[in-house]
């Protein structure tokens, strides 16, 4: 029984990698320059930040809380705080940035977990007032690090630009975050509790799971991932400002859902989300190779998204596992 479940769940995940495979073939057909190490690395680098955010967002969706719309605010806030705290030294600044992001995550998690507030609405409200707060505090300005040679600012800017051999650090961090997220979700008690909370919150409550704590941790995971991505984003842009990170909310949800995590909660795999991120990266890359402008890419992305998700749902329905 248990084995059977694992097998089907692996099959579900294989679906998204089938799409990845098709896209790779399509890319090879489009251009001989597609399947080069450089190009594939650039695809990975391009979706690295999105992947980081999605690896955290997956926890929120998995536990049945749809999405965290305050992700852009978390990214911007952690970036600004890190840049502002740079005079205190790089490690301290990074810690401050992540703590700032976690603080928002804790607020989200506490409210949604404790009072079962609607997560979409609550995180939207948080995104609104955080935007106002950041605009007000920094008077709509960009915060720059000190870029004197040898200063912490230079080290901070270098974070995004670090490479390990030919591979950019951000790609490694993204992969590491996915592996950790995968292990946490499948191998820990917290992961199993998240699944139960996502499948049936009331049942989880009744069976003695501290739902509020589990939800809090889920939002903290999303906030942690978003803060790390936000710090990389600030490092890339060499500054912190209130609008960095805009659009990552819906983009990350797209990656999570296309990767097979059900919005109804309790179903899906982190490895699938990684596949979803790859699909988005490859699709954009191929369209750029063909020369489809970004104005029209929207149409293709929207259609591919609904087609893939529709197929997943259809397969579930055929097997009588229709939860949605």
């Amino acid at each position: 029984m248990h084995k059977g479940f694992r097998f089907t769940s692996a099959l579900e995940m294989a679906g998204i990698y089938l799409v990845v495979g098709i896209l790779v073939l399509a890319g090879m057909a489009v251009s001989p320059k597609f399947l080069t190490v450089d190009n594939l690395l650039s695809v990975l680098a391009a979706v690295a930040l999105l992947g980081m955010v999605a690896s955290g967002m997956a926890f929120v969706t998995y536990s049945g809380n749809l999405a965290d719309l305050s992700v852009p605010a978390i990214m911007a806030f952690s970036g600004i705080i890190t840049v502002a705290a740079l005079p205190a030294g790089l490690p301290l600044a990074l810690a401050a940035g992540i703590l700032a992001g976690l603080a928002i995550g804790a607020l989200n998690g506490w409210v949604v977990g404790r009072f079962n507030a609607n997560s979409i609405l609550w995180t939207l409200a948080v995104a609104f007032f955080m935007e106002g707060f950041m605009r007000f505090m920094w008077s709509n300005n960009q915060v720059y690090p000190d870029t004197e040679p040898g200063s912490t600012g230079v080290a901070f800017i270098g974070i995004f630009r670090t490479r390990v051999g030919p591979v950019p650090l951000i790609v490694l961090v993204m992969v590491a975050m996915f592996i950790i997220a995968h292990l946490v979700m499948t191998r820990t008690r917290f992961g199993r509790e998240s699944q139960l909370v996502g499948s049936n919150r009331a049942a989880a409550q009744t069976s003695g799971i501290r739902v509020s704590r589990v939800v809090l941790l889920n939002f903290l995971a999303a906030a942690l991932a978003a803060s790390i991505a936000g710090i990389f984003l600030a490092s890339m842009n060499k500054l912190g400002v209130f609008y960095l990170g805009q659009g990552y909310d819906f983009r990350a949800v797209t990656a999570v859902v296309i990767g097979g995590v059900m919005l109804s909660g309790g179903r899906g795999r982190v490895a699938g989300v990684f596949g979803g991120v790859l699909v988005i990266g490859l699709l954009t890359n191929i369209m750029q190779f063909i020369g489809i402008t970004s104005l029209r890419q929207n149409i293709v992305v929207g259609l591919v998204f609904i087609a893939v998700v529709g197929l997943q749902q259809y397969r579930l329905r055929v097997r009588g596992k229709d939860y949605a």
Binding site: V111, A125, V126, F128, E131, G132, F133, R135, F136
Partner: peptide, 28 residues
């Protein structure tokens, strides 16, 4: 400025969401 508008907008929404959630929570 706009920063105050968006801030107050968020605050009003937050209070409303929180109030409703709290009312249901109390009920539960």
């Amino acid at each position: 400025g706009f920063e105050v508008q968006i801030f107050v907008n968020g605050l009003v929404l937050a209070v409303v969401v929180l109030y409703e959630a709290y009312a249901i929570h109390r009920h539960d």
